[in-house]
Design a protein around this nucleic acid. Structure first.
Lengths: 163, 163
DNA sequence: GCAGAGTGCTTGCAATTGCAAACGCGAAGG
DNA sequence: CCTTCGCGTTTGCAATTGCAAGCACTCTGC
């Protein structure tokens, strides 16, 4: 086991560095790593840790993610236009919260589809939360019943406002 | 330096593992690392390389990015509002559904943050939100109550009804 | 009480990371 | 010619990663 495809990340770093017209030593200093080590990284002789990789990304003023993707450490990133994907990728949610959000979203999708089937053409009016002509349909509430456990989390009532 | 902010990543991993109801050894096997090493990682005694981190993410079936963000290895300039953006961009949701989902998401983030501050005291996360300290309208709170103490139950399935 | 299987944790040890120091090379400048 | 300054690279070496083996503990069943 020597240097499988680690070269790609090294090549990518060197590419970016040369494109930025900075020397190896400069980048090493900017990234806070030693010059010899950066040299070895660029030639694929060393497999840098995530921390070093992040510092190099900073020194190069490029996205850390770009580097991780190049290193094969992040699966090809899907566009954030997918709600499910975004929820799954959010590190600030607990596993339970993720699952609940996903379930709600899917329930909404079904609900919306049902509405579209009925109206079939008219679906472009803005609903305000206060002047809501229809309350929350129990359709998705029913779908969420399996989560029921109730801890009595009651809080004050605030005026609704849109973002 | 003994324990930088690596502890947070370890805690996060342990949290996710326990939420997934799998043992340390199971995750270690799934991630392709040794059990003792994973134990040390979770307790913040070791600083895992990016490769190991990625394998653990796979073993946990969570996004690699989530781990990197937790480890502080990705710039926080990645807005956690990816979910918000995705919701706003989703053409398959009605305006009201969008607003409800966004409110629920933000509520979850507040809840999660509170939990994190209890267990650990490293929560210097900035976050931009217009409705920061303002609770949900009780219209949505009613919908959220069932989630308050739910466990990892993901069987909210309802057949489509568009005939 | 004791074997068996489960959990997580501690202990040496090979392999690797990451660095300080030194090396060879080319271009200014004395 | 010889020094100085920059470049990238090579060379030992301390510190760390990551693992195989074993430890301590808790259940369950005999």
């Amino acid at each position: 086991m020597a240097l499988p495809k680690v070269g790609s990340i090294g090549e990518y770093i060197r590419e970016q560095r040369q494109q930025a017209k900075i020397s190896l030593r400069q980048l090493a200093t900017a990234a806070g790593v030693s010059n010899p080590y950066l040299s070895q990284i660029e030639r694929g002789l060393r497999k840098p840790s995530a921390e070093i990789l992040n510092q190099i990304a900073k020194g190069l003023h490029i996205s850390s993610q770009a580097l991780y993707v190049q290193a094969g450490l992040i699966e090809d990133r899907e566009p954030p236009s997918d709600v499910i994907t975004a929820i799954r990728a959010d590190p600030l949610l607990s596993g339970r919260q993720r699952q609940v959000l996903i379930d709600i979203y899917e329930s909404f999708r079904k609900e919306k589809r049902a509405e579209d089937e009925q109206t079939s053409q008219n679906a472009h009016l803005r609903h305000d939360s206060e002047s809501d002509d229809e309350p929350l349909p129990d359709e998705y509430l029913a779908a969420l019943e399996p989560f029921a456990a109730s801890t009595g989390n009651g809080t004050a009532n605030q005026e609704t406002k849109e973002g």
